Simulated assay, not measured.
Amino acid sequence: MKEGIEMKKIIRLSMVVLGIITFSGCSQKDTANDTSSNSNSDKQVSKKSDQNTTDSAVSIDIISNGNYLVGKDIKPGSYYAVLADIEYGPDDAEEEGYVYVQANTEIDGKADYTAEMLYEVGDRYRFILKDGDQVSFEDNYSPASWKVKLLNESDFRTYMKKQ
């Protein structure tokens, strides 16, 4: 008799384990499907945001210190900041002047920034500007004048061919 009871326990335990495995397998399959559908929607959102930034970039020249608001002063998009010209001031005999470019943005609700110093004509820096970002241009060692070109992809290629 004891053998019969033990056999029933083993069968019940096996059925419980089999049910758990079957249920877990279905859950993982559903989760995998959910993840792939989320992944597809992420890709669509990502494509849409890429289109919003890269398609609307309009090249401009910056010739003075200041803060520029993306969406108002500068169109959102992907840019190359290229130091196109710099005239060193009379107090900069060693030609140490440069232009400092800083883009302030927000990532996941937290303030962040990227920055670069452009020392020589031809120095360049690539960044993506979103609506609401702020870009600052400052010169150091008092150059007499300078020009930074913010170039979209197409204009950057054309510019580089001429160099």
Rank of each mutant, 00 (worst) to 15 (best):
A84Q: 03
V70E: 03
T105I: 12
T114R: 08
Q102Y: 10
G71Q: 04
E116C: 13
V101H: 00
G77N: 10
S78V: 06
E95D: 00
K75A: 15
V101D: 03
K75N: 15
S78D: 11
A115E: 14
D85L: 04
L69I: 11
R126F: 07
Y88A: 01
G77T: 11
L83T: 02
V99F: 03
E87T: 14
R126A: 11
K72I: 09
G71V: 02
R126E: 09
V99P: 05
R126I: 05
I74R: 03
G122E: 05
E116R: 13
L69T: 13
E87C: 04
D92K: 15
T114M: 10
K72H: 05
A111G: 09
Y88E: 05
Y100A: 14
I107P: 12
G71S: 03
Y119C: 03
T105W: 07
A111Q: 14
Q102G: 08
N104C: 10
K110S: 13
G109P: 04
G122S: 07
Y125V: 01
D85I: 00
Y98T: 09
Y98H: 14
S78R: 08
T105S: 14
D112W: 11
Y79D: 01
M117N: 13
D73N: 12
G122L: 10
Y100L: 15
L118D: 01
E116L: 11
D85E: 11
A111R: 11
E96K: 15
L118Y: 01
Q102D: 11
M117V: 07
K75W: 09
T105V: 10
A115M: 13
Y98A: 10
D112H: 13
Y79M: 05
I86T: 08
E120L: 06
T114A: 10
I86E: 03
N104S: 14
I74H: 02
K75T: 15
D85V: 01
G109L: 08
V99E: 04
L118V: 05
E94F: 08
D108Y: 05
G122T: 09
E120G: 02
V99Y: 04
E106H: 11
K110A: 09
G97A: 15
G71D: 00
G77A: 09
A93Y: 08
D91K: 14
Y119Q: 04
R124H: 12
A103C: 13
A115F: 08
G97I: 12
D92E: 15
A93V: 08
G97C: 13
E87M: 08
E87V: 12
T105G: 08
K72F: 02
G122N: 09
K110Y: 10
Y79Q: 01
Y125A: 05
Y119T: 03
E116K: 15
G89Q: 05
P76S: 07
G77M: 07
K75R: 15
G77D: 08
A81S: 02
E94A: 07
S78K: 10
L69W: 01
Y119D: 01
A103Y: 06
M117R: 13
A81C: 01
G89A: 06
E94D: 11
L83M: 00
G97N: 10
E106G: 07
I107N: 15
V99H: 04
E106Q: 14
Y119I: 05
G122K: 06
Y88I: 05
V70M: 02
P90T: 13
I74A: 03
A93W: 04
P90N: 12
G122Y: 06
D73M: 00
Y80F: 12
Y113N: 15
I74K: 01
D108L: 07
R126K: 14
Y88K: 07
